[in-house]
Design a binder for these strands. Sequence first.
DNA 1: GTGAAAGCGCTAACAT
DNA 2: ATGTTAGCGCTTTCAC
Lengths: 360, 360
Amino acid sequence: MPRRAMPEDGRPRPSTIRDVARHAGVSVATVSRILSGTYPSAPATRGKVMRAVRELDYVANAHARGLAGVRPKTVAIVVTSVVSPHYAHVAQGVQDQAAREGRLCIVGTTGGDPQRELATVRLLREEHAEAVILVGNMPADDAYRERMADYARALAVAGSRLVLCGRPPLGDDVPAIVVEYDNTGGAYAITSHLLSAGHRRILFLGRRTGYTTPESRIAGYRAALAAHRVPHDPALEVDSVVMDRRDGHRMMRERLDAGPRDFTAVFAGNDLIAAGARAALRERGLSVPGDVSLVGFDDLPPADDIDLTTVHVPHEELGRTAVRLALDTDTPGTSQHVMLGTHIVVRDSVRPNLEEPPSP
Amino acid sequence: MPRRAMPEDGRPRPSTIRDVARHAGVSVATVSRILSGTYPSAPATRGKVMRAVRELDYVANAHARGLAGVRPKTVAIVVTSVVSPHYAHVAQGVQDQAAREGRLCIVGTTGGDPQRELATVRLLREEHAEAVILVGNMPADDAYRERMADYARALAVAGSRLVLCGRPPLGDDVPAIVVEYDNTGGAYAITSHLLSAGHRRILFLGRRTGYTTPESRIAGYRAALAAHRVPHDPALEVDSVVMDRRDGHRMMRERLDAGPRDFTAVFAGNDLIAAGARAALRERGLSVPGDVSLVGFDDLPPADDIDLTTVHVPHEELGRTAVRLALDTDTPGTSQHVMLGTHIVVRDSVRPNLEEPPSP
DNA sequence: GTGAAAGCGCTAACAT
DNA sequence: ATGTTAGCGCTTTCAC
């Protein structure tokens, strides 16, 4: 049972560095130095201090330390939601690396609301975290760029590094680190996979103009079609608003109800959409991959559950890399740019197309 | 473009309350009072101050404020992992309520490792958060109780409230708020659901002795059997270690390979196990619910994807309630206890049992 | 209604 | 190798 200071009011208060100093018979400076471990000290003194620390159950006050000019050991991550697997896995990577480097992790959720994002970044500025990692999902318009640039400058003044995760760079004048992954390359690869299986009419589910991630993916889809000399039919690209399972189900259902099926394969903009589309196909008596081939993007649950061939995105590595780069003070540049690779994961949702012969 | 203090070294520093005071021609005390909004002040002064705040882009330093005796607006949550849907949903509830009440949220992950948990709680003590919410998954032995009691006392001294989420209370002498949900009731209800459909041999997948959550669930299972006067066969209870999809698959596969099938329905200890078991059943040519009925527990993804009848657990409400109770300083008691209800969600994974006639 | 000044607990010069 | 002391930026008495 630790002894602790107990003022007259009968409520114990946390031990302070002065309590420890007194208890050990040394000065507060000595205690501070020994605990920080960066100065030489006599073993005997060290022993006394450590014993006092233990007996008084002393832990430093993070706020006092922060005030005294030591950057708090904290990284922050801002996401739309922590239940979305995409964000959850990036957050997990951030947590991993943060814990490994002895940091605490502040997580903010915005629900996709710019107002809440703004409020969160404001609160984070107050905290003076070492890094603020934004895994936003905002349209990449000018307003967005400007907002990010504002964040970047304000955070830079407070000494925090801003990391943009999964989005393209903003420009060299903006002090932000960017960690993204190869959406276009992945989409190109998996579209080629379908083309190689003889599919020519590939429905793309989840076009979302103005949003960088879906746009990069559809760009890869189109590039692959072009490379294989397959005509590009804009009618095969379906717009989505929310990019979730429900929306995938809706898009597929509406498409099937609108007329005769004019595709043999489906490329869903993400695995959630793929899951919804698959359900809709089955409701209409179409099996995957028996009747229709289906691929997704992300390699997150429920991809494994539904045996979906998809593009693996290194979500956790994204988070880990973000933390690593932000905490790496050896590299002084505040505007690095890293692009992580993606690759296909083949499961059982694609079959060769037999409905029309492949072009010669 | 905000003007900001720019020392000789050419690196701007964040504006302080003194910069604002000078800029507005008032004292720092006045600025502090106006920003806290709890004191009367002349409208003219208020205007000057607010303008200065805007022009200097001032945000308060959370550490200075914390040091000066104001409890930081922060709640903390400690979970095993943020990718596990169970924890993610509770965390989402915590985030929701925290944001609603203007709080920042610190998230710590332990990976189930008591060492990391200890380290995390230590770091959180330094932060003096208003609340520390533990959503642990530890065996409920004496060592665990003692550890929790230690946390509780240490955090109480630092003025933080400890909330135990999804676990039974520790005792009145431990200053902790407990928010749990009705595992036994839910298990009782869904077992009754299977019994009403005529099932008598119900395989329970996921017994884990010493862990409160699985133990409460199996208790409900046994209670329902007893209430329906169905003999309890211990051979129908299968032990699990990790309680995940893979383990569900393994348990089901091993059971099916061990001999002739001696059950008509399966009660999986959670939805992940159910998903794994379902996959194993299908690999052996058994359909759900055609050949075997299957139910789970939690109502989390992938329950919806696989049309699983299961028990709904109010995960997000758990998190919201934890924050609400912890921040409710009107109720001074630090050892409240709340139990949230659970209920069945019927989907399409149960069929009446035809293999043997129900008892008369 | 506003100002002056005393800390909060810690770190980092500056002494010795 | 250790002690002394001046802040860090804010809130909050206590005066006026």
